[in-house]
Design a protein around this nucleic acid. Structure first.
Length: 372
RNA sequence: UCUUGGGAGGAG
């Protein structure tokens, strides 16, 4: 009972849905915790298809399970299933509403998200922060300012978002001033500003703060590494990679992407080959690396070889083939997708348009889900 | 019950 559930939970967290499933299958009787742990094990490992299967088999679905499934669809960018699930839920709470308003912000526009924010029957500070975060990540300074003024109160999270937003807009003096005047700071606020500096090319500022900070965790190290790599400072990136106390998938993949974007496919491949184990993200990075460096055949080859595919890898494949003008290939992949995302449909639409296939473009357009 | 929100890796 309790112990077996704990095991499912632990395996799920450690990234092994398979092990969790083994324990789950051997658990009898299963209570609602067993089912929920198994469900989150799948969603945390980005396995939406298996999560969906499990969800359908669940003898009783509580609000928590519905919310988990809703979040899984929303994070995968599945418009239809997200809306359908939200509409079918027997009850909704503030978490369900927040999941949906975040989804709107990511896939619609600011006006829609703001309208929903005002009409939602339940809202809390998270709702505001969720919408703000999406726009801050995209760097929309003017729009976020409106929301900053409208929201009921500021806390550490909002301050941190604001600081990062200014830094991403290269307003580094203001960002630093805000950072210095904010009422409290934690590890995330430090990392947020440092990585924003680094990624905008202010490596001197980033490095100085990095040296000043009392403790450095894996995320901060990786942030610096990404900054170096994005600014093509590979000597420094490699040095950070060696010096960091530990490395995870993110560190390895950051090196792969950094080299690939600089056109150094051989270096990217060598990091991929040396990874202790590759995950979905690193596989996708490598698939895209080949395509963007002119080797579509090998890209498709890897795509077929990869142990699993999710909505991002499918979308990536549609986009890269569309960009190389391989319309037939693009269409094959697009048709094979388990569920279309807005990004994949947009790419497919553009590909048809560019090749003068107006009728086909129209069919795709009509089939595209509308977020409203 | 780390289901939604601020810091690091894949498409957009």
């Amino acid at each position: 009972g309790f112990i077996r559930n704990k095991l499912i939970e632990v395996y799920g967290k450690c990234g092994s849905a398979k092990d969790a499933r083994e324990v789950f299958d051997g658990t009898s009787p299963k209570d609602s915790f067993s089912w929920d742990f198994m469900l989150t094990a799948y969603t945390r490992n980005r396995n939406v298809e298996e999560a969906e299967k499990l969800f359908q088999e669940m003898p009783e679905k509580n609000l928590f399970s519905w919310n988990v499934m809703l979040a899984a669809y929303a994070q995968s960018g599945y418009v239809l299933r997200t809306m359908e699930t939200f509409n079918r839920m027997p009850q909704r709470d503030v978490v369900s509403w927040n999941t949906v308003v975040t989804f709107y912000a990511r896939n619609g526009n600011l006006e829609q998200a703001r309208a929903l924010l005002k009409d939602m029957p339940e809202r809390d500070l998270v709702s505001w922060k969720a919408v703000i975060a999406v726009y801050a990540q995209e760097g929309h300074l003017a729009e976020v300012k409106i929301l900053f003024d409208e929201m009921p109160g500021w806390d550490l999270v909002v301050w941190t978002t604001a600081v990062a937003l200014y830094a991403r807009n290269k307003r580094i003096v203001e960002a630093r001033e805000m950072f210095d005047t904010m009422p409290e700071r934690d590890m995330i606020s430090w990392t947020s500003l440092i990585t924003a500096y680094a990624r905008k090319g202010y490596m001197k500022e980033a490095k100085d703060m990095f040296e000043d900070i009392p403790e450095r965790d894996l995320i901060l190290w990786t942030g610096m590494l990404v900054g170096y790599a994005e600014n093509r400072l590979f000597t420094e990136a490699e040095e950070a990679f060696r010096r960091m106390p530990e490395r995870n998938m993110v560190s390895w993949t950051a090196m792969i992407v950094g080299y690939a974007e600089a056109g150094r496919l051989d270096m990217a491949k060598s990091f991929f080959d040396r990874m202790p184990e590759a995950d979905l993200v690193s596989w996708t990075a490598m698939v895209v690396a080949y395509a963007r460096n002119g080797n579509l055949a090998e890209s498709i080859n890897l795509f077929i070889q990869m142990p699993e595919r999710d909505s991002v890898s499918w979308t990536a494949m549609v986009v890269v083939t569309a960009q190389t003008g391989e319309l037939e290939e693009t269409k094959r992949i697009y048709d094979a997708m388990p569920e279309k995302t807005l990004a994949s449909s947009t790419a497919m639409l553009a590909a048809c348009g560019c090749s003068g296939k107006i009728n086909e473009a129209e069919i795709i357009f009509e089939s595209m889900p509308v977020v409203d």
